[in-house]
Every structure is written in C-alpha cells, then in structure tokens.
Design a protein around this nucleic acid. Structure first.
Lengths: 314, 314
DNA sequence: TATATTTACGTAAGTACTTACGTAAATATT
DNA sequence: AATATTTACGTAAGTACTTACGTAAATATA
C-alpha cells in the first residue's frame, strides 16, 4: 500500500475507509461464530427494529442514514427469511409498518449475546488507545459540519491564487488593457459613453498627469484587472474604472486593487475618496462596502449609468 | 441518525465509514471545480502512475490496496479516455505495462494544482484537531494488526462464558453424569476398560470415601464437565477422569476443573499430584502443561491407553 | 524434458449500495 | 372542490467494488 504513504494526509478519506473496511470484515466473521442467521449488512435495520417496533421504511432509512431504496431492498430480503412482518398502515395507505416477527425476535435474543461481546471488545479496543479515536471522530464530524473539506480546499486554492497576483503601477504599455478591460464590462451591462472614452483613450493625460494613479493586476503574465484614483480637488479623489476580467474572478483581485488605490490616495494627500456606480453591479457594491465605502448623496455624476454614490473618509 | 447513538461504540466501523463517505463526496466536488477530467475513483491509479511510470496491473493493485480486477477495469476506462497507454512487456508476455499518455501527463500537471490545495486543506483540518485523527488512525491500524477485532470479540465471549460456569462438589445425583461424560470421550478415542467402569460406577466408594474428591462443572443448568482427585497414598494423589463435553468447549472448563482439583489436593495434604494420559489427546496434554504438570517416567499405569505420566509437585 | 504450480491478467457475475423514475396516497393551495 | 405539491414507497438501472473463473505465460519440480 505504497499509495497511502505517497499520498499522505491528502488521503485521510481513503485511509479511514480502509480502516472501516477492516472492521466490517471482522464483524462479518463474528456472525459466523455466533451462528446468528443475519447478514451483517442487515444489522442496522434489524437493530433499529429490535429497539423500536413498528417503523416505516422512511423512518428506518433516516435512522440508519441510508436511502429508503436500500432499506426497502433489505426489508424484502429479511421478509423472505421470515425475520420481519410488514403490515399496511391503516391511517396512511402509503406507509407500510415493519416489525420483527416471532422468528426475528428469537434471533434478536441470540444477537444480544453477540452485541454484548462486540460492544465490550470495541470499547476495550478504544480504551487501549492513547489517541482517542472516538473523540477524534466526533471532532472531525464537528469540524466538517462547520466548514466542509470542499470549502476548505476552495479557500486554499484562492489563497494560493491570490499570491500569484501582482499589483503594478501604470505604464504606457498597459493603456490598451485599461481600455479593453473597462469596455468589456461596460458593454456587458450598459453602453459606452463619451466620458468613458475620454478617460480610456487618454489615461496618462487625464488621470496620471493630473496627479492621480492607475493600478493593474497581473496574473500569470496577463493583465486581468485595473483600477484608478483620479484627483477631483486637493482633498477629494475618485475611485474609478475598477474592472476585473471575468476569467480571473475569485482571486480577490478587486480587493487588492481597491486596497492599493486607497493607500495611494492617502499617500497623495486625499482626505476623502469618492465613487459612482450602479446598484445592478451587486458584487461591485459589496466590494466597495468591504473596502469601507458608505453610500452618500453627492453631486450628479457625469455618467448616465451612475445611480449610487459612495465615499470613504480617509 | 439515531442508530449510531443507540449502537454507540459498537458501531465504530460504520461511523468511520460514514466519515470517509463525507470526505469522498467532498473530493468528488473538488474535481468539478478544478475541471480535471478524471473520475475521483481513478485517482489512486492515476496518482500512482504519475509518480512511477511503467507499472503492471498487479503492481498498481498492490500499491493502492485494491484487487487487480478493479485496476484492470479502471485502466480500461482510462484508456478509453486516452489518459494512459498500455504496452506488452517484452520480457514477460503476461504483463502489460501501463503508462500515462501525453494527454494523461497534461492532466497530471493540472491535477498537481488541485493536489496542493487538497493537501494543505487536509493538513489544516487535521492540525486544527485537538484529538489527533491521524495518529488515531495509525494507532488503531497497529492495534488491530496486533489483535484483530474478531479475536477480541471471541476473547470477550469466552470471558463471559467462563463466568457462567460453576464448579460443584460431588453429589450422588451427579454419578450418572460422571459416568456418561467419561464414557463419551473414552469411546471416541479408545475402548472402555474394566478399571474405568470400576471407578465410573462407584465414584463414591472408590474415590470420595477413600479421601479423594470429584468436581463437576455446571453450565446453563447442565453438567458439562468433571474431574477427580483420587488418593494414592498420604502424600500422593491422582488427577483422573477429567472430561469436558464437546459442546461446552472453549469456556476454559478444563482449566477451571484442574485448578479446583489442585487446590483440593493441597487442602487434603497432598505433596504430589500424578496423572496418566495418552499423547494422542493433545489438547488435554497441553492443558496439563498449563496447569503446571511435568512429564515423568513413573510406575506402569493400570490403564492400557496410558502412554504418558505427568506429575505436579505441590 | 515433461509436468505441476504459480503468476499476471481479463472477463463475468454478484453485492451493496446509489440515483432516477413511477405510482398512489396525503396534504397544501387556489 | 379542483389542482398542485409533497410524501412514502417500490422498482429499475447504474456504479464501484468484490470473488470466481479461465487462459496463457513463467517458473519450479520430478
């Protein structure tokens, strides 16, 4: 079993399964010894019925954590062996009430002996352990309920991806990216306006040279996002032209760009950062909130699409 | 999932399985996200091949701990998807050597990213735990290797059965049992001799009244074993007529009876306990050894079948 | 060298589940 | 009251394994 060594902790699941298989195999052997005429797989159903008489298929399925189809099949087999009886529910024509038959009850008595031994052997095994397996199981179930392995993996992926993002300062080479990235999302939701082209075609003269700044996000050698801070007056800057390529979503690029812009605005002496957006752009608005922006009613924006104004006091 | 609560620690196996199922389910979802075109079930085979190129079906099967049939089926499917190539081994016509194809290697590169994230998520999950699941697994594997759950259950059963055995003193009512139990085994292996009947028909006058003693083992209201100590002289007693019903084997009844006899002999002032037996009766000889008897060359026994003499110095 | 055993592998069939689907009864909604 | 939805259940089909069996090649034994 080289694989488990190579795969290491990645394969906790497989390893747990292997362990449970060993235990199941052992349990099957136990039935032989005690000569209890019961398939080991039937045990959960049988045991549930021996503790509570008169259950429906669904109830049993829920109790043992399997599908109703599985229980239905098991019951069919157990009925063939004469271990249980099935009666129609008088109050509810859909339900069929299952009970241990006389023979089933006899088996149950014999099974009791076996269970006593299995129980004490299992308990002894667990008590011998320095590392408490029982508590480990409980803890892992709890931790996974709080946050599934899937969510954890996705988080790790993001963490790793974010590290691969570099935030770059403006360079003339990036002008094309600046335009393309913005056109892309504007066209998807609205129409490109004159004011847009004004900035997108001449970022250097209209933003940089007027004392603002533009950042770019690079991911795997490609420019996948941008954001600008434009000077409005000595104390007020505008956060604008935030845009992240759809194929680079989920890497916190918007947040990284936003943070960079806020820091830059502070460094440039801004006391207040302003932005205009549209409420249809829900993820964007959420991001601005996360960055600390609050809704305000400000002067009318030069953009038709802007129906919300936000600001951040620095 | 009431069942797990009711069954408690008895159901460690099932519970482990449930946990591993959850993890497997999560792993399957992970594949979707990373868009790696690989069935989760193929992973062990794929991973093994990505680490070691050019393996046979048997080698892979051993490495991942599954049957060769399963690997054979998986390989068939993977070949259909173009992930692997299969070449006949030139040195050994039976073997077919399996390798990742060019496409397989591409997938492997993409998979690498995923594995990094799964690994760090798993490691993080495990490191969050107060009760170390990883060490628990290792320990349980070790303990079960040393002594399987099956063996443990059987031992518990014996322990419980032994408690149900009562050792009783001689009473005239038991004379019939005394005779029957002994006749049973003598006839199975040898022939009943005159000396046998002499004792078996008159235990009271020939054993008890001469200062010896007879014990009986009762199990579930039935006499299932017996053993006698007969006075030979003031200091020497004979352990004789040990006999346990076959249906009551595995409950240490022979040992209990032997112990009782040894104690009784001591109480009666014996310095030496003697017995004659036959080497064909291997379990009996083993029992005598366990009780402390040593082989001696003594005076010829009155029984034809006796080909070994043993004694215990008290 | 002939024969028996072992090994590597594929295929078939079985098992113990699952999901998907269908039906009938019960319950909710209009 | 008519209709839609939900629920309880059975059956069929699929999946991912297993064991059992068969074949051909390699190896051991006589």
């Amino acid at each position: 079993m080289d694989f488990y060594e190579m795969a290491g902790k990645m394969a906790v699941g497989s390893r747990l399964r292997k362990l449970s298989d060993i235990l199941t195999e052992n349990a099957a052997k136990v039935y032989d010894v005690y000569q209890v005429d019961l398939e080991p797989r039937w045990f959960p159903v049988f045991y549930t019925l021996s503790k509570t008489e008169g259950l429906g298929v669904m109830e049993i399925a829920q109790s043992i954590g399997q599908s109703h189809a599985s229980v239905s099949q098991i019951i069919k087999k157990m009925k063939k062996k004469g271990l249980i009886t099935e009666v129609e529910d008088k109050a509810d024509g859909r339900r069929s009430v299952v009970e241990l038959s006389a023979k089933g009850k006899q088996v149950s008595v014999r099974l009791e002996q076996q269970l006593i031994d299995v129980k004490s052997a299992s308990e002894e095994l667990l008590s011998e352990m320095q590392y408490d397996m029982w508590k480990s199981i409980e803890e892992m179930e709890f931790l996974l309920e709080q946050r599934s392995l899937f969510d954890r993996v996705v988080a790790k992926r993001k963490e790793r991806e974010v590290k691969k993002v570099r935030i770059l300062d403006y360079a003339d080479d990036y002008q094309k990216d600046f335009k393309l990235l913005n056109i892309e999302w504007i066209e998807a939701y609205f129409k490109v306006e004159k004011t847009d082209l004004h900035y997108l075609d001449n970022p250097k003269s209209h933003i940089i040279d007027k004392g603002g700044h533009i950042f770019f996000a690079e991911y795997e050698g490609e420019i996948v996002g941008t954001c600008a801070v434009a000077r409005m007056d000595n104390e007020t800057f505008e956060l604008a032209k935030m845009s992240v390529s759809p194929k680079a979503r989920g890497k916190s690029i918007g947040w990284l760009l936003g943070q960079a812009c806020i820091e830059k605005a502070k460094a440039l002496g801004a006391k207040r950062l302003f932005l205009g957006s549209n409420t249809r752009l829900v993820p964007a608005i959420n991001l601005y909130h996360k960055l600390g922006f609050q809704k305000v009613t400000g002067p009318p924006s030069p953009y038709e699409r802007a129906n919300i104004q936000m600001e951040l006091i620095l």
